[in-house]
Write a protein that binds this DNA or RNA. Structure first.
Lengths: 91, 91
DNA sequence: GCTTCCATGATCAAAATCGAAATCGCCACT
DNA sequence: AGTGGCGATTTCGATTTTGATCATGGAAGC
């Protein structure tokens, strides 16, 4: 599923143009992205939780030379699936 | 950031009522949830990728008794942040 | 439809996380 | 205001994540 498909699903349910639907998707992802970049946690009950967390490990590997490479400081975004998504049946 | 805040951000940008904005958020999360439950991967360039993956670890622990417990079959949802979210500066 | 730029895969090794369960507090959502 | 999802807690070890780099498939912009 890609952005266009999500927008399509949206316009199939609500009376909006595909262009508007795409704007909506972009807007929401953008807002969420900003919030996460701002260190804010996003919680959507029934869906999941996005949480920015500090990256602790500082060691990587250069595949070309095979030698260890220091990984600079940073954060990572963790997504924790909500109840509905955790109760997945193996089909 | 919670659902209402996302909806508010939406209605501040597009001419929609808060009720409609909430419907949009619910619709999108619902659609994405269904796609993930269906084993489909969701990729939004610039934001991130949701990917259902089989859970391989099959050993847990009962904190009450302290004994090992078999972890039943299942999947887990992994979210991989896109480029914009990976390049986070530690503030 | 074409172009552009992003995401994936592969590699390696170490450190960190996940997973189960039960219970309580808190807060998102109705 | 009421409900129930979610975090936190503990335990322990196997799975996984994490980065660099380069090539390729593909999402998204035009």
């Amino acid at each position: 599923m890609i952005k266009i498909e999500i927008a399509t699903a949206l316009m199939q349910t609500l009376p909006v143009s595909k262009a508007t639907a795409l704007q909506v998707v972009d807007l929401l992802t953008d807002r969420m992205k900003k919030a996460l970049l701002d260190g804010e946690r996003i919680e959507i009950r029934g869906f999941g939780v996005f949480e920015p967390r500090p990256r602790k490990r500082g060691l990587g590997r250069n595949i070309k030379t095979g030698q260890s490479v220091e990984i600079p400081k940073g954060k990572s975004i963790r997504f924790k699936a909500g109840k509905d998504l955790r109760d997945i049946e193996v089909k």
